[in-house]
């Protein structure tokens, strides 16, 4: 896999906004189970747009893309009132989304990451600790735990996903509307 400038942009500028993006989606979309899919779809869209031209302002671009996707989905769902869509149009992203710098950086983020790892299922946790904290290769992890290398690989695959998801939770309670108004959620009748 060759790394492109877009890959770098995506990893360094888009992914750090994941907590903020997820907070936004949670406030705007009632169906929580659909949020991971929405998020991946938003990533796909911003990535494809960036292959044409990398946007100058990543954050507004990401949230505009998110908003447009929600509007598309809401229209397709056809259960959404015009009012809700207007609410979306109204949204001033910069005012309501905490900056990632404000939420968790550096050591605090690492503390939360640690907490996330502590919540992994025991075997997955042990594999992750040996691999990440000790830096042991998978082969040595297998030997040390007395399990097969393919089991270690399976546990890594599991740990990778759980850790990625745990990072979303590295965000404080989202700030609701500036005027104390709770934003309505798309999809509510």
């Amino acid at each position: 896999m060759n790394r492109s400038a877009v890959d770098l942009w995506f990893v360094e500028e888009v992914l750090p906004l994941e907590a903020a993006l997820t907070g936004y989606l949670r406030r705007k979309w009632r169906e929580v189970s659909e949020i991971p899919d929405l998020r991946q779809e938003i990533y796909t869209r911003v990535y494809e747009a960036a292959t044409v031209a990398i946007p100058e302002m990543t954050k507004p671009f990401l949230f505009m893309t998110a908003r447009n996707l929600l509007i598309d989905r809401a229209r397709r769902a056809q259960v959404v009132s015009i009012e809700t869509v207007i609410d979306l149009e109204d949204l001033d992203v910069a005012d309501t989304v905490p900056n990632p710098e404000q939420s968790a950086v550096g050591r605090e983020a690492m503390r939360l990451l640690q907490a996330a790892i502590n919540r992994l299922p025991p075997r997955c946790r042990e594999v992750t600790l040996l691999r990440k904290v000790h830096g042991l290769p998978q082969r040595d992890v297998a030997r040390r735990m007395g399990i097969s290398e393919s089991t270690v690989e399976q546990q890594v695959a599991k740990g990778v996903r759980l850790i990625a998801d745990a990072m979303i939770d590295i965000v404080p309670e989202p700030v609701t509307g500036r005027f104390g108004r709770r934003p309505r959620k798309v999809g509510q009748p």
């Binding site: 992914l15 990533y43 796909t44 690492m110 503390r111 904290v133 830096g135």
Partner: peptide, 23 residues
């Protein structure tokens, strides 16, 4: 993008080795 996201998270966990309170 799915792969890049997981890879970034997995690499980030390496920093546990230099944090204050690694498990």
């Amino acid at each position: 993008v799915t792969y890049l996201r997981l890879e970034a998270a997995w690499q980030r966990a390496d920093q546990l080795r230099v944090t204050r309170q690694a498990p």
